[in-house]
Design a protein around this nucleic acid. Structure first.
Lengths: 343, 343
DNA sequence: CTGAAAGCGCTAACAC
DNA sequence: GTGTTAGCGCTTTCAG
């Protein structure tokens, strides 16, 4: 193995006195090649330390065997689970992953989309940033016929395939649970209502209040950016309300934990004074006190489903445009933060 | 823009009545091309919706402009910070990232290394899995002259560049802090001592005990896999010790949180009965009760440093083999979980 | 400042 | 079952 010099199929061909085409076929397990030759090819490849030049192959085949993944952040349990699911499926199918994250910025998201497009991904799986409103940056993909699958944070128009949970239902059952625990004034802490997930959860929240004859005032809705600072502020704001809320439904477990901390620091008891329900079922929920009631939904499944749909489409097994919306199961996990009555 | 047909530099050249070579040079801001021509080229490229074919370019230049990153897991704050740091630097320098994670399995790590090698990354940044002992899977990189940088979990032999913190010192100050708080029997919960980070922290722990005249028994060392289950077991084991420890130094914040939960469930008060110090400064430490004393070290800086070193080497600005070990600062963050005396 | 031409390593018609 | 050949899109000498 001379350093610096790459082994090519020509080297293998020469050593074996066969043609490069045969080597190429052999390496791909083409059935037209006899068992013996194939074995000789593989052995020689090993011996010489051959490695495929993916760039030559991709150039030739004009397809990259790469799937782009566009997410808002990497730092949540949920996202890493989704990634794990995607990775499992794509790896099995022999695709590479190019992962980009937008740090919740629509501008960076557009830049990443452009980059992935220029990298010629065969398909794209994406979850949108907070403030993404237009889907223009995905247009090039559509024009080139590169299939798109959105998950979780999506924009639902006619021709996107989306993998989501029933956020409205989740919002409803979370709120209903609080009502069943005796809460009369429930505050909802969430992020920009322009984003489907938050809009839907809010809708569920409102519907549940309405169906149970509870009234709603604007002050019961707190919209922020789900940061630690925002969590503290939300809690302080609730402390000043008259009357104070006796239940909170928060759209994210981290912010729930922050809120709870601030409330407890101010002498409130959870769930007696205020019952709390979060969202996502992050590890944190089971470590804080009291343990957090939350909505669980399977990131890994969402990832697998998104990836599988995309790949089946790429392989021509199914057409992605036929399956428009896939809803993944979700459930309420009841823990102490909301439990005022025996179950 | 006809669908399915890619625009190449030949198309641009033809439209402009110049040669493909000129277009290629223009696109790369080659100073040999006049401003006017360059502008015309860019405008036409825009108009036609041209996108570079990276595969053709890489094939031609036989370098990929890609850096591989090999990590044990994605699900920690620390790792995602490192990744953010790496990404910042590599993006600025125009490199792509190929990220692989080994789920703490040496076997998968080797497979990932092989894959990245076959993908021909120009350089590799890695942090090892728990049970990785041999560095054989990195040999191909060395043989081909592909530069390697290890961070955090490393194997220190002569010719690897490593970016680490002073784990022994951190272990020492964590332990010393507990001693200063009046702890007489301190237990250390950690992972496989084959891994440098854990071995060094343990060394610091032992040194601190020794320097302060405290004796050590084998039972004061608990080695596990840092899972939730392991955290619970560790706590239960300590509850059975006679006498019970009055201080714990745990190598990871998550396990600290789990341990604390179990101890509290069993009626122990923290820090009065047992003082706890963790490691990593994850977000969780500030949300549990009492807030967790821990060691902070800057993942983002480690990522940036690792990436910068690698890239400078690739660009020939500096030689990676000259800088063998880079130590990043770290510090003890004191919170309530360990505070028995006024500061 | 620009053009002509060769070649990076691989695959896929098309032959035989 | 195997060989010949052309070409994927780009960069880069070498010429002018």
């Amino acid at each position: 193995m001379k350093p610096g010099k790459e082994v090519t199929i020509y080297d293998i061909a020469k050593k074996l006195n066969i043609s490069p085409a045969t080597v190429s076929r052999g390496l791909q397990d083409n059935p037209a090649i006899s068992k013996k030759t194939r074995k000789r090819i593989f052995d020689m490849a090993d011996e010489l330390g051959y490695r495929t030049n993916h760039y030559a192959r991709n150039l030739r085949q004009s397809q990259t065997n790469t799937i782009g993944v566009l997410v808002h952040e990497l730092n949540s349990n949920f996202i890493t689970s989704v990634l794990a699911g995607i990775e499992k499926i794509t790896t099995e199918a022999g695709y590479d992953l190019l992962i980009a994250h937008s740090s919740e910025s629509a501008v960076k998201e557009a830049a990443n989309a452009r980059n992935l497009f220029h990298k010629r991904v065969d398909g794209l799986i994406a979850s949108l940033a907070f403030d993404t409103t237009s889907l223009d940056h995905f247009k090039p993909f559509k024009e080139k016929g590169v299939p798109l699958v959105f998950f979780d944070r999506v924009e639902q128009d006619a021709d996107n395939t989306v993998v989501i949970i029933d956020n409205a239902k989740c919002g409803y059952i979370a709120t209903q649970h609080l009502i069943e625990q005796g809460c009369k004034k429930i505050v909802h802490v969430t992020a920009s209502l322009k984003r489907n997930v938050y809009a839907q959860r809010y809708k569920g929240f409102r519907d549940a209040l309405h169906d149970h004859g509870l009234k709603f005032e604007e002050s019961q809705l707190i919209v922020n950016d789900l940061s630690e600072k925002a969590g503290v502020e939300a809690a302080l704001r609730m402390l000043k309300m008259k009357p104070m809320p006796d239940g909170i439904f928060i759209t994210n477990d981290f912010v729930s934990a922050v809120c709870m901390r601030t409330l407890k620091e101010n002498g409130l008891r959870i769930p007696q004074d205020i019952a709390v329900v979060g969202f996502n079922n992050d590890a944190i929920g089971n470590l804080i006190e009291p343990a957090l009631t939350t909505i669980n939904y399977p990131g890994i499944d969402m990832g697998e489903i998104a990836a599988r749909n995309l790949i089946n489409h790429l392989k021509g097994i199914s057409d992605i445009h036929q399956t428009n919306t896939i809803i993944v199961r979700s459930e309420l996990i009841i823990r102490k933060s909301s439990l005022r009555k025996p179950v």
